[in-house]
Nucleic acid binder design. Structure first.
Lengths: 113, 113
DNA sequence: GTGATAGTTAGCATTATGGCTAAGCATGAT
DNA sequence: ATCATGCTTAGCCATAATGCTAACTATCAC
């Protein structure tokens, strides 16, 4: 009931931080270097590095180093498990709504009798 | 780029815990009492209570007390901001893909000349 | 009223998170 | 060779998160 989607926890956790979400949004526009990502956050480099590694470990971004410059880019399909989970939730919920509907209809029918 | 959606952080954080997700999934089937929610988790009541208040503060569930029994139920529209954020990300990403596409097409056209 | 049941509150221990500084290590430019 | 740049590592601090136990309150059933 918990163990079989460890990455979902990791994903949600990575997304739970506004700084990380803003980095993601920025990277969705175009790949960027670590320093450029750090600038708008007002945070120090090591702090941003940590955010980046959280994002990378969650699979949300990929990075590569060329010379002394590390370039980061989003991994768009990384959000798929999140979407899938949300959709599953919706399906279950709607099934429940349907049952509720049926229940209400039943009650109304009984009342009418 | 961070302050104006505090609930998004709260939502993602609430969803980042497997126990809380399993509670949500269970509640999506049908409303339940605190004790019934606690049972399958193997956790103590106070611990589960804390998870429930995290979920409630994030707006993901609502609870009400009747006599000594507290009943919890999901709030389905609570996930909407999450969906919206995901969709926005996808839009930005796709715009970027389109630009990349245009770029590639351009290069190919130039080569052909 | 006694006792079981359902939840709540208080407080504690452990670990994780998010920020920092200081110092280190490559690489690129001169 | 020297220096600036860009990233990295190590280590510290404060706070928040997750679990627990123990004790307490409020209801319901007899």
């Amino acid at each position: 009931m918990a163990k079989h989607d460890p990455d979902l926890s990791q994903l949600f956790h990575a997304l739970a931080d506004p700084t990380r979400r803003s980095i993601l949004t920025r990277l969705a526009e175009e790949p960027a270097r670590v320093t450029d990502l750090a600038a708008p956050t007002g945070l120090r480099l090591p702090t941003v590095m940590r955010h980046l590694s959280v994002l990378e470990e969650a699979g949300l971004i990929s990075t590569s180093k060329d010379g002394r410059i590390r370039t980061c880019a989003v991994v768009p399909e990384a959000l798929d498990p999140v979407r899938t989970w949300l959709d599953e939730q919706r399906v279950i919920w709607e099934a429940r709504l349907d049952r509720l509907d049926a229940f209400v209809m039943n009650v109304m029918k009984e009342r009418a009798e």
